[in-house]
Design a protein around this nucleic acid. Structure first.
Length: 235
DNA sequence: TCATTGCCGGGTAAGTTCCGGCGGA
DNA sequence: TCCGCCGGAACTTACCCGGCAATGA
């Protein structure tokens, strides 16, 4: 189910899986995606809707518009467990799921200018894993420390492989009914050095800025929902 | 000369975790 | 009473963007 993998990529990049413990013994299981772009958030919401329906769950998909972003939130223990399990077994993703995961991750944390193919994250192991998947697909990449202030790494696909990378993630085909935002299918040819401000309609890269996420393999493997803080994300 | 890419600073769009409330088992 | 789901928002920082300089063809 590549839509789950895509959503997981979005969650890892622009959201989180939270087990919240409140006073009085109350708990909440949250699956969250945050986005500035309302259209992307809406499509994520649609995909969550479909997934909940498929799983026979009646949880509400909340789309909360904030001052600077839109939060798509599903409060559901079963959905939280589903994504947790998938995250714990990330290395066991099928090939098509890997591509979907990378696409979700790139939608969340990738360079949208199209001038370079970069993917930022504090978790070097995650980027190394993505790099190894790309290598298996014939796409070389490098991982280096990009932001020494915050210890943020970047995975960069060098120019000889850039076009292939974008074609892999966003194959030139008409938008299907998967609910994924159209623009992800509109970037088959990314210029080696394109215009900084392309004309409206020329492409649909969204110049978003500022996302963060921290994902831990160890946390993913250990946080099965039993005991402890159960946070999937570490600071 | 030009394309590529490692590095870096700016600043905001994310992430994270509180709160109170409600309802079902 | 316990637990899970809903709705909101405050607070902090991890990203992204884009420029610059070094490098090499």
């Amino acid at each position: 189910m590549s839509s789950v993998a895509y959503l997981l990529g979005l969650i890892v990049g622009d959201g989180g899986l939270y087990l919240l413990r409140y006073k009085g013994g109350r708990t909440e299981y949250r699956v969250v995606v945050t986005q500035k772009d309302a259209a992307i958030a809406e499509n994520a919401a649609k995909m969550f809707h479909s997934l909940l329906k498929e799983l026979g769950l009646g949880s509400k998909v909340q789309v909360i518009s904030g001052r600077t972003r839109v939060e798509v939130r599903v409060s559901s223990k079963r959905l939280w467990q589903l994504f947790n399990d998938k995250l714990a077994n990330l290395e066991g993703l099928a090939p098509d799921e890997r591509i979907a995961f990378i696409r979700g991750l790139y939608d969340a944390e990738g360079d949208k200018t199209g001038r370079r193919a970069r993917l930022w994250n504090k978790n070097r192991r995650l980027l190394d894993l993505v790099g190894s998947w790309l290598r298996e697909l014939g796409i070389e990449s490098r991982v280096y420390l990009d932001d020494k202030r915050h210890g943020v790494y970047v995975l960069e696909v060098p120019s000889p492989y850039r076009r292939r990378f974008f074609e892999l993630l966003y194959p030139p085909q008409p938008p299907d009914s998967s609910g994924v935002h159209e623009w992800i299918n509109e970037v088959p040819t990314v210029p080696a050095r394109g215009p900084a401000n392309p004309p409206p309609g020329a492409q649909s890269w969204d110049p978003r800025r500022g996302e963060k996420s921290l994902w831990s393999f160890t946390a993913a493997c250990r946080c099965g929902g039993a005991g402890g803080a159960e946070r999937r994300w570490e600071r």
